[in-house]
């Protein structure tokens, strides 16, 4: 277990500091959210629907701009206008609830595209990397399939491989198993567990309490745009916090 109080600051990969997000329609989706994420750490975020989990995750790779506060990635301020946001995004991968694979590309093509266009890898180099990654997520025999020919679980594993192809420093997961049939949840969680074991820094929004218990270094509870609680899994799931109790009572 990483004790972040005694770690030097450079161990912190992502530092969110008093982040506020107010949407143009006036919705105050994030209220002074602060969270430090260490290198190699797995942080699971849980909370009711509409509590701002997705919004928070999306601010971490600037798919969503923030209204106030700041976010440091490897000590680079994302809110600084001089920061090259495209370069930042290559360092923070994102896996979406609805996969968002590119339907006009095969599994291999999906994984190869960004390395070729953004990292300027040669076609052979990108292909070799994509093959290795698809092999790692257990899709060696599905490389030339289009997404429409893949099951949800397979699509999500391609999406993970696609993010990994950019060799990110951290991966963000927004309810990666919520759109899946129950029998496919396991295969995706297994890939994520493997990544965690290999030391990937991960921020995971999920309702899979088992995953949180087993894999998370810390569990975060959000409600109504606030970060309510931040604990190790053992302490988290034994917490007497009334708002958390109410939420867990509803989902379990």
């Amino acid at each position: 277990m990483i004790d972040h109080l005694t770690q030097p600051d450079s161990q912190i990969l992502i530092k969110a500091n008093k982040v506020n997000k107010i949407f143009p329609n006036g919705c105050h989706a994030l209220k002074d959210v602060s969270l430090d994420i260490q290198r190699g750490e797995v942080v699971v975020i849980i909370g009711p629907s509409g509590s701002g989990k997705s919004t928070f995750l999306r601010t971490l790779n600037q798919l969503e701009s923030i209204s106030s506060g700041n976010i440091l990635l490897d000590q680079v301020d994302l809110t600084d206008t001089r920061t090259d946001i495209n370069a930042v995004r290559t360092e923070v991968g994102m896996v979406f609830q609805s996969f968002n694979l590119f339907p006009h590309k095969t599994a291999l093509g999906n994984v190869m595209l960004a390395p070729m266009k953004v990292l300027n890898q040669s076609k052979e180099e990108a292909k070799q990397g994509a093959r290795d990654l698809l092999y790692r997520v257990g899709l060696a025999d599905r490389m030339n399939n289009y997404p429409s020919r893949l099951s949800g679980g397979q699509q999500q594993r391609v999406a993970i491989a696609r993010s990994l192809a950019m060799k990110p420093k951290a991966l963000l997961f927004d309810e990666p198993t919520s759109a899946l049939d129950p029998e496919m949840v396991g295969e995706v969680l297994d890939v994520m567990k493997e990544l965690a074991r290999e030391g990937m820094t991960m921020v995971v929004v999920t309702h899979e309490m088992g995953f949180a218990r087993e894999v998370a270094d810390r569990v975060v509870f959000m409600e109504e745009g606030e970060l309510v609680l931040e604990e190790t899994p053992e302490r988290f799931f034994h917490s007497e916090h009334p708002r958390l109790q109410r939420f867990l009572g509803q989902v379990l």
């Binding site: 495209n86 590119f102 960004a114 266009k117 953004v118």
Partner: peptide
């Protein structure tokens, strides 16, 4: 819109 978001989150710029 998820397509644009997926592309951008892989580091592609708007034009790419």
């Amino acid at each position: 819109v998820g397509q644009m978001e997926a592309a951008r989150s892989l580091g592609m710029n708007y034009v790419q």
